[in-house]
Design a protein around this nucleic acid. Structure first.
Lengths: 204, 204
DNA sequence: TTAATTATATTAACAATGTTAATATAATTA
DNA sequence: TAATTATATTAACATTGTTAATATAATTAA
């Protein structure tokens, strides 16, 4: 009986702790999506979460850990957006292209999320942290089904598919990096044109 | 006579001012190549340059302006390295590939320079600042002659060349970004393998 | 040549941010 | 209810970029 009570008490503690962590995570997400990563700091986050800034350190090792906790949620949101935008595409390379464009547009809409995924230093976050791998393979994950479709329907073979996945991964962040961080090209229109050209060259 | 003296005096002032700017630039370059961009700060730079930190603001608007002053020199150094490493390559796509690999290896050797070129926020540095454009077209510049050769020798046409240049620009920074900033892949060996595969797919 | 002026450099100070230490408050347990 | 533990807050400190106030050096004018 006492043992049961102790366990329940521990469970409650975990749940409550997780709730407060979540308040901080939601606050951080709001700031990243709104004002961007540059205005994320412990005091702003704590204000938004309704706590003092030092409280944050009872729940997260440091601000970096907190910030990278947001990745999962953003990926989920991005995936939803992409699925919605591409659900009517016909299967195959064409859908892969549309998914990739939709994926890129998500980051253009939220520059702070782009910075978090690709530019933010990982610091103490271990280099083999699951989040890092999740970011790397995120586009693969979004297009997984379609590649399967392509291979099954002999549109391409496994090796070609792997090579093209790799190209898409690198090409997309390259284009985004120049556009978002170096303002090249200078117009959105041109960015879309480059993206289209480059995806065609990579996929077909 | 008086007018001549005045002009000479003005010229001397310019020269002296430029010399001191150069001391700060050399100091900054040394830190970026050595300890990296993360340890670049006004106090470190001033120590290295032999001045007080506030003196820096007599010669540069802010630390960002100073840091981006280093780009030109690093590009020059990178170009020299690349030319040396590829001078015996046979002309054409093969040499373009080798130049690109050499270019990428330069950034792997100096992560701080990679950060400066592609990751560092430009802030007050105007978005149409010449440096930004220089960074964007740097690989084009390194490969310019070889593309000319390819077009003259009907290895590819102008349009194809432009598209492939664009691919190389984006692909290289994408691969470098994942490797340097997200430690993916985790080994240099694998990084080289990916680079080779991707350049082959892009060029041939 | 010396006094006044201008240019240049330095120290002091401030603001922003991340983090930790000391203290206060709330919750839990004996 | 008192003691203990857990949680939150305020105070404090370190680092960094930047500006203001002050000192020093160089130049110019008498």
């Amino acid at each position: 009986m006492l043992r049961t009570l102790t366990l329940t008490s521990k469970d409650n503690k975990k749940i409550q702790e997780e709730r407060i962590r979540e308040y901080f995570i939601q606050a951080t997400k709001k700031i990243i999506k709104g004002e961007g990563l540059k205005t994320v700091n412990v005091r702003n986050i704590a204000d938004e979460a309704g706590y003092s800034y030092a409280t944050l350190y009872n729940y997260f090792k440091d601000i970096k850990e907190l910030v990278f906790e947001c990745v999962k949620d953003f990926q989920f949101e991005c995936e939803e957006t992409v699925n919605l935008e591409t659900k009517n595409s016909r299967h195959g390379l064409s859908k892969i292209k549309n998914i990739t464009i939709s994926f890129m547009k998500y980051f253009v809409q939220y520059p702070g999320i782009f910075e978090l995924f690709y530019l933010e230093k990982t610091s103490d976050l271990g280099h083999k942290h699951p989040t890092i791998k999740m970011i790397y393979s995120f586009l693969d994950q979004l297009t997984e089904e379609e590649w399967k479709y392509c291979i099954e329907n002999k549109i391409c073979n496994q090796t070609e598919a792997e090579q093209k996945k790799e190209t898409l991964r690198n090409l997309t962040v390259g284009i985004l990096l120049f556009y978002m961080n170096r303002h090249t090209p200078s117009s959105y229109k041109e960015f879309v044109a480059i993206t289209d050209r480059q995806l065609n060259a990579a996929l077909y």
